[in-house]
């Protein structure tokens, strides 16, 4: 068995981080209180470690040992469980994670994780003061906006280069014309086939 000091240290740090995050997201904290009294076991197979999430009225307590009743148990590798809880994986199908117990608790938790909206500006204001925090947050937001615009512009330029300059791929309008031509040809072939069939039927009738 691994030395409990290390895992206790990790769980303590995670618990404190979660408490800090919830402090700046009162909406999620209020929703989380609805799960109070329930305990979810994350039974990680890789690395082999059991983590108990105990929901309380004020947040989440994490522990490596618990002897009470469990609402649900999630079993799988650490990465798969994390993907299921924090990323876009919404279904257990193909997730590599199995669940036993009340699946509703997992659904509620996933919903809350998706809605997590931490007020970073407020968190920053508690450390460096309101005005500097606002100025810094504005700069970060500005930088984020600039970054998004540059990314969109780069995507457009690459698309134009590939389609117009290098000719490596078809442009959108050329592709549309090409598809329309194929459609016209298909209709013409269909019509021709129908005429041949009609002529053949006409000749057969005359022979008799």
């Amino acid at each position: 068995m691994a030395d409990p000091t290390a895992i206790t240290a990790v769980l303590t740090a995670l618990e404190k981080a979660a408490a800090k995050a919830l402090e700046y997201d009162p909406g999620t904290r209020a929703q989380l209180a609805k799960l109070a009294g329930q305990t979810l076991l994350l039974d990680c197979t890789q690395p082999a470690q059991k983590i108990y999430l105990q929901f309380t009225a004020s947040g989440i307590a994490l522990s490596g040992h618990y002897e009470g009743e469990l609402a649900a148990t999630l079993s799988g590798s650490g990465t798969d469980i994390a993907k299921l809880l924090f990323a876009d994986q919404h279904s257990l199908y193909g997730s590599g994670v199995s669940i036993s117990g009340n699946a509703g608790v997992l659904a509620q938790l996933q919903g809350l994780m998706g809605q997590l909206d931490i007020d970073w500006e407020l968190a920053l204001a508690d450390i460096i003061g309101t005005l500097p925090a606002h100025a810094l947050a504005q700069s970060v937001r500005g930088a984020g906006r600039w970054g998004r615009e540059r990314a969109q512009s780069a995507e457009r330029l690459i698309r134009e280069y590939l389609a117009e300059e290098s000719g490596a791929v078809l442009g959108r309008s050329e592709f549309a014309t090409f598809v329309a031509d194929i459609d016209d040809t298909r209709f013409a072939v269909d019509r021709l086939g129908a005429r041949i069939a009609r002529l053949q039927a006409h000749n057969d009738h005359k022979d008799h």
Binding site: T5, T8, T12, H65, Y66
Partner: peptide
């Protein structure tokens, strides 16, 4: 500060409710 972790683990193992 590690004594706090030792004590926390002790509380977990106590299973006090």
């Amino acid at each position: 500060g590690v004594h706090r972790l030792w004590k926390r683990y002790t509380i977990e193992k106590s299973a006090v409710r």
